[in-house]
Amino acid sequence: MKVKCRINGENYETEVEPRLLLVHLLRDNFNLTGTHIGCDTGHCGACTVLMDGKTVKSCMVLAVQANKAEIMTIEGFSERDGELHPIQRAFAENHAVQCGYCTPGMVLSTHFLLMRNSNPSDSDIRNAIEGNLCMCTGYVNIVKAIKSVAASREPDGQSLENR
């Protein structure tokens, strides 16, 4: 079957088997290996990407379901000038990254939270990344990093993502 979609602003088109998972399409067919696989059952969130503006676990989506979709993976997430996005910077500065395997999914889930909620509470943050497992950090510094991004937002309330 044919899949035609936009990923990180570029057009992609290929023939796939109907059973191919989106995560394998991204990783194997398009070489976008920043999206990781950690559990195969939709529990760990390492494969989180944005599909039509919403986070999905790409191991739970068939490649063909992404036909005509707009997808953003971690590779498309940096600032235009190549600088780190404030979320990525906060993850580094707060040591929210150890092995880094969960990080792309965590960053995108954080982005999805902050898109909708510019001033998240502690429990908003925990709800937002509950579907992303991290085995290294105990989440302590991940929560700290997300809080620091929210706190550093501009006073006019404009979200960092819309700048």
Partner: peptide, 9 residues
């Protein structure tokens, strides 16, 4: 962290 936060690990 630069490579790991940007999916370039």
């Amino acid at each position: 962290d630069r490579r790991l936060t940007t999916g370039r690990g």
